[in-house]
Amino acid sequence: MSYTNLLVHLDDTERCEERLTLALSLAQSHGATLTGLFAQSETSGAGIVTRRAGPALLQAAERAKDSFEAKAREAGVKCRWWQLGHGEYGHVISETTICCRYVDLAIFGQHDPNGDNRVPPDLIEEVVLNAGRPILVVPHAGRFPRLGDRPVIAWNGSREAARAVNDALPLLKRASSVLLLAFHTHPGGGEGGNVPQVDILEHLASHGVTAEQERLTISTMTPMDAVLSRASDHGADLLVMGGFGGYGGSLFPLFGRGSNTRQILRQMTLPVLLSH
Rank of each mutant, 00 (worst) to 15 (best):
G189C: 07
S176Y: 04
V103Y: 04
L105T: 00
M224Q: 06
D116I: 00
S41K: 00
I124R: 09
I135K: 15
A70F: 11
H276W: 12
A154G: 14
V92T: 09
A211R: 00
W82M: 11
I218E: 03
V240Y: 01
F108Q: 05
Q59P: 10
S219H: 07
V92P: 12
L171R: 08
V103L: 02
P151L: 09
A64P: 02
I124L: 05
N114K: 08
T217G: 09
L7Q: 13
I98E: 03
A27K: 04
N260D: 01
G157W: 03
L129G: 01
R230L: 12
E95T: 14
G190N: 02
T96M: 03
S94V: 10
E14K: 03
G142Y: 07
L238N: 09
G208E: 03
A106C: 15
T269L: 05
A106Y: 15
R257M: 11
A164M: 01
V138I: 08
A164P: 07
L123S: 06
F68R: 10
L238Y: 06
L273I: 13
L57C: 00
V195N: 13
G192R: 15
C79D: 03
G243T: 00
A168N: 15
H276C: 13
H203M: 06
S259T: 00
E18K: 07
G115Q: 07
R19H: 06
V227A: 08
M224L: 09
A182V: 07
L228T: 00
P120D: 11
R15C: 07
E214M: 03
A64H: 06
F183D: 10
V77C: 15
L273G: 15
D12G: 15
T50E: 04
G246H: 09
E88S: 15
K173D: 09
P187C: 10
D112H: 00
Q28D: 12
H276N: 15
E42P: 03
L136R: 10
I200G: 12
R118V: 10
E18Q: 12
A141G: 12
E202I: 00
K71P: 02
H91Q: 12
L181W: 02
H111Y: 10
E214S: 04
L238D: 11
S94D: 15
E191H: 12
W82I: 00
I135R: 15
L34D: 08
G193N: 08
A61L: 09
G85V: 00
D112T: 00
A161S: 15
Q197D: 13
D122C: 06
L24M: 12
G248I: 02
P134F: 10
H276T: 13
D167S: 14
L274H: 12
C100P: 01
G249W: 14
H86P: 01
E95G: 12
E160V: 01
A70L: 04
R266M: 00
R146K: 15
K71C: 04
T261K: 02
V209R: 07
P121W: 13
Q213A: 10
V128A: 05
A64R: 05
P151G: 07
D122M: 10
F255N: 02
G192C: 11
S275H: 11
D237Q: 03
M1D: 03
L228A: 08
S232M: 05
P253Y: 13
Q59L: 14
D122F: 11
L84M: 12
L6W: 11
L239R: 08
V272I: 04
P271D: 08
L26N: 02
L6I: 06
S176D: 09
V92A: 11
I153H: 13
